[in-house]
Design a protein around this nucleic acid. Structure first.
Lengths: 164, 164
DNA sequence: TATTGTTATACTCTATAACTATA
DNA sequence: TATAGTTATAGAGTATAACAATA
């Protein structure tokens, strides 16, 4: 323990604002903070219907792909099969969608929005537009296009080279 | 239950690629996926030293602010006091930093990197440069600058208006 | 044999409340 | 009274393994 205290730089910094060093120049760091900020704004905007981003995206997928299997919905959003289960449970318990027997594969459940699910999603889409408008107002129409373009590229990064 | 099955759109979609609807045009959606992709690349790149992004950023903050208090480090990174504790525990147990008595406030712990912590961080910085290089190669130098600029703006969104 | 949904489990991250020792 | 660190706890998100029913 005493040895662990050797050779330690004891220059103290006493200001309250810390030096972030290289962090603000790293894409991952700024990306992470921006993402948290956007999700927070989304959740605040949709607080009146108590819908999180995941739930919204699942509802949207089901609306555009009625009868889709759970696994396909999960795969589309990058959610593991086992983790989709409780999300669909939640959605079904809230009466927004139902699991119905799949027409050709009896292992699968086909997902459909209920009338209430469609109503809620329509309302939700309005809230999401408000949220999106706030983002576009902040970065500008052109900034928004460039942003989506670059995030799209980053989303499909090449695999890091395995060591030779 | 049977009533819940009324008025349900039964148009089935049987392709494996689902229609994502408006999601790919929403900033939050693309932002989230890009962020996951970047963190995955970071973790893969730093796998040899087994360091997650949070740990890297804490070590970086301590290096640039030797003697900083736990609370200040957490505040700089948006991590709650109570959640900083176990992260510093982990870092201290790995011998990368130490909690030392604060010079003027006996409630506080002053954080310092150990020699090993400095060695590891120096190595880590090289790995992070490789990671960052991969991102910049993907979006271009100019794209990177625009990206950081816009993410910075989004990070500081105005509060959503409270209903009048 | 492989796949779909499911359960169980574990780990990380996040959020809140309450305690302690100091200020 | 307020603050720094801590503990306990709970809710999300994410990951793996294993099982039943079905393909």
């Amino acid at each position: 323990m005493t040895e662990a205290l050797q050779n330690i730089d004891r220059t103290e910094t006493e200001t309250d604002e810390l030096d972030l060093g290289p962090l603000p120049g790293l894409i991952g760091y700024v990306l992470r903070r921006a993402q948290l900020s956007v999700f927070k704004d989304f959740i605040d905007t949709c607080a009146e219907v108590n819908i999180r981003p995941v739930i919204y995206s699942i509802l949207t997928i089901i609306e555009h792909n009625p009868g889709a299997r759970q696994g396909a919905v999960g795969a589309a959003l990058g959610i593991k099969r086992s983790n989709v289960v409780s999300l669909i449970n939640e959605i079904e318990q809230r009466g927004l969608a139902v699991r119905t027997p799949h027409e050709t594969d009896r292992r699968s459940h086909a997902l459909h929005l209920t009338a209430e699910g469609k109503r809620l999603l329509a309302h939700l889409d309005g809230l999401v537009r408000t949220h999106e408008r706030r983002l576009i107002d902040a970065v500008g129409k052109d900034g928004r296009d460039r942003l989506i373009e670059m995030l799209d590229i980053i989303q499909n990064l090449p695999e890091p080279e395995t060591k030779a």
